[in-house]
């Protein structure tokens, strides 16, 4: 590791700025994750509807916001929406006029589109027999969704959700192009001041890596807690203990 030309003093000096950048990155992760998830539910219901008037627009939404590279979405919102006069005059300009607003809009729409597919896949994975059993018990559709389909979909879809969240965090690194000083932008700024190509970027990499792995571990615990009912875990644990010498 000593081969890495890291300037320890510079790294130490940069820490406050890097933490400030991390804070921005975390903020630009958490907020769009929440907004995107909230958007994903209604769009997913529309997508799964047998009525074409509902499912077609939802499908177009998903294809566009999932298929377009995030960088282009960000440019589109940041540069493109300013072109629309009605928007510039309207009350939403507070949102679309600021880099943060644009980044949050672009990231949220992108995440929503991915989450529609994650949700749909997870809901479709719930065995039909369980829904029938709930129906036979006279449980209403709303309650079946809340108490049977959604809890099970969460268990089936958790891995896909984790993957999407992790790749989303990494995706936020582009927001520096609209002048937001996130973790990546802080590293770039330090590079431009010092021309040290390794220290700032590797420090930022460490921060990203740590953030991603905290999330990963969080998901692992969540998954273990959700799957406490599965026989493999419950039965395998005591059996494993007896086998080890």
């Amino acid at each position: 590791m000593s081969a890495l030309p890291i300037d320890v003093a510079l790294a130490w000096e940069s820490l406050p700025a890097l933490f400030a950048g991390l804070r921005v990155t975390v903020f630009l992760t958490v907020l769009p994750l929440m907004i995107g998830l909230m958007l994903a539910f209604p769009i997913c219901f529309a997508r799964m509807s047998p009525r074409r008037v509902l499912s077609l627009p939802a499908e177009i939404f998903v294809v566009f916001f999932r298929g377009a590279p995030l960088l282009i979405l960000l440019y589109l919102v940041y540069y493109g929406l300013g072109q629309i006069e009605a928007l510039r005059e309207g009350p939403f300009w507070v949102l679309f006029g600021s880099p943060f607003g644009c980044a949050i809009v672009a990231l949220s729409l992108n995440h929503a589109a991915y989450m529609v597919e994650v949700l749909r896949g997870s809901l479709l994975a719930v065995p039909h027999g369980l829904v029938e059993a709930s129906e036979a018990l006279g449980i209403t559709r709303r309650n079946i969704f809340l108490w049977v389909r959604m809890p099970l979909a969460l268990r089936y879809g958790l891995k896909a959700y984790q993957n999407e969240v992790v790749s989303f965090v990494k995706g936020t690194a582009i927001v520096s192009v609209v002048t937001i000083t996130d973790l990546m932008a802080v590293a770039n700024a330090i590079f431009e001041q010092t021309y040290d190509p390794f220290t700032p970027i590797l420090c930022a990499a460490t921060f990203y890596w740590a953030f991603v792995n905290v999330l990963r571990i969080g998901f692992q615990f969540w998954g273990r807690w959700l799957n406490r009912h599965s026989a493999e875990d419950a039965v395998a644990a005591p059996a494993g203990r007896t086998v080890t010498p």
Binding site: G129, A133, L137, I139, W147, L152, H229, S230
Partner: peptide, 19 residues
Amino acid sequence: NLFPHLTALENCMLAPRLN
């Protein structure tokens, strides 16, 4: 068609509680 995420007891309780 038991609900795999609920215990035997919770399987039995679900419908009476909701309905």
